[in-house]
Write a protein that binds this DNA or RNA. Structure first.
Lengths: 234, 234
DNA sequence: CGGAACGTTGACTGTCATCAATCTCTGTGG
DNA sequence: CCACAGAGATTGATGACAGTCAACGTTCCG
């Protein structure tokens, strides 16, 4: 099987096969560090830890975050559309594997296993893009925020008692706003409202928790789809 | 090379290799016809002519069009996220190739050529999704409409004298609105404004033309990126 | 302790959604 | 060929939500 089945989104297919790892080099990055500055070289990056963002500046003074990459995700620097100011930035400390496209191509031709892994990763990420289109295209501000919080809770959260969940916020308020196509001010207002409604709590800038993940999900019409695409491997 | 270079988005890589074609069956469809009604079977569709839409109903009474597929595009029915009312519909009369996933997987394993074609198609489509995220996430109503019109002009347009261009509108107003995350009423107002400004003209419901494609592009901050991703092969 | 970046909150404005009425195509049947 | 019906498209009046600008508070760093 070279195409990924919905049922095979498990841990073993998440990380790249050894041949791919051997073809690349590990890169350690601090928060807010740019990736793939050299546009001359077309690289593929595989996220091993941390969170990487794809950003662009379609307008003067306007930033848009187009994609969020988590552990196991694959990024092809040459596949970024020609939008002004497009580029990759880390949101948190991160470790990525950098593989030249030509070397990866060799591995793919030699190892069908690698093709299976790549197709699987790309299919997963394509689905997530479609879902995010639905989020920013059809949900109200509060619903968008709830959806992103559910995503974070599933991706980087530590479950607690009775459906409670503590999780890191890998993106700053401004970054979350740019991802959700909301104003940073508006996002702040929404977060305050959610806090007052006891749906979430925050501790410091980078962390949050929810007493009931189910309650948070009820605020997002697309929580079910998010859960399907971001739930940690069983 | 198994990954697609930006420079290789040419006609020869657009259509599936013969082995893939042999593994599937051609299906002819009328406008507004649904695809892949049987959720039991996971299929891959390749668009050979016409336009296919991926739609969903994230909210009661709200339709969102998540993706537009043109000639040469690849759709995997199993990759659609679990949003309510998600499914494929034709916008126009269309012909697609329907290939069972298991059969395609066999071909991919046997023929590296096929893997190259598939990776190429998926990379192209992923870029387009990112671009569309930027469109609905950061552009004003009029800019979104201009962007979509440029896309149509490049995809299905017949160039005329001095930058003029006549093109079919494969989507109805309602569908365009649902794709751009605009109200159908608002879209209609914007189209009227563009008509009064002589940027576009319409003849009947399904056709439009622009006296100057360059003028239309000037209304879209992302026209350059659209051109890069939708320009017909040289 | 001080400064800078980030986050919060309030008052105001603008854009787009909503609702309702009218108009225009398109296909059908007399 | 024309009349009709129904869906789709247009247009106007109105309101709500989110953006903008500005001021203040908080967190985190040296």
């Amino acid at each position: 099987m070279s195409l990924c089945q919905a049922a095979t989104l498990v841990a073993e297919t998440l990380l790249p096969p050894a041949q791919v790892v051997k073809a690349g080099v590990a890169v350690h990055l601090r928060p807010q560090q740019r990736l793939g500055a050299g546009p001359s070289q077309d690289h593929v990056f595989v996220v091993r830890s941390g969170v990487v963002l794809l950003e662009a500046h379609p307008q003067r003074e306007a930033r848009q975050i187009l994609d969020i990459y988590y552990r196991g995700d694959v990024i092809r620097s040459g596949g970024v559309p020609a939008i002004a100011g497009a580029g990759l930035v880390t949101a948190t400390q991160a470790e990525v594997l950098r593989v030249p496209v030509s070397k990866l191509a060799d591995v793919l031709n030699a190892e069908p296993e690698s093709s299976r892994w790549l197709d699987c990763a790309l299919a997963r990420q394509y689905s997530r893009r479609l879902l995010h289109t639905a989020v920013i295209g059809s949900l109200a501000g509060e619903e968008r925020v709830a959806t992103l919080l559910v995503e974070f809770a599933l991706r980087v959260g530590e479950p607690g008692y009775e459906g409670a969940c503590t999780f890191e916020l890998p993106l700053s308020r401004t970054e979350m706003a740019d991802y959700l196509s909301l104003n940073a001010d508006t996002l702040s207002r929404i977060m305050s409202r959610l806090r007052q409604a006891n749906v979430i709590g925050t501790s410091g800038r980078g962390r949050a928790y929810t007493p009931s993940l189910a309650a948070l999900c009820k605020l997002s019409p697309l929580a079910e789809a998010v859960t399907q695409l971001h739930r940690p491997a069983p």
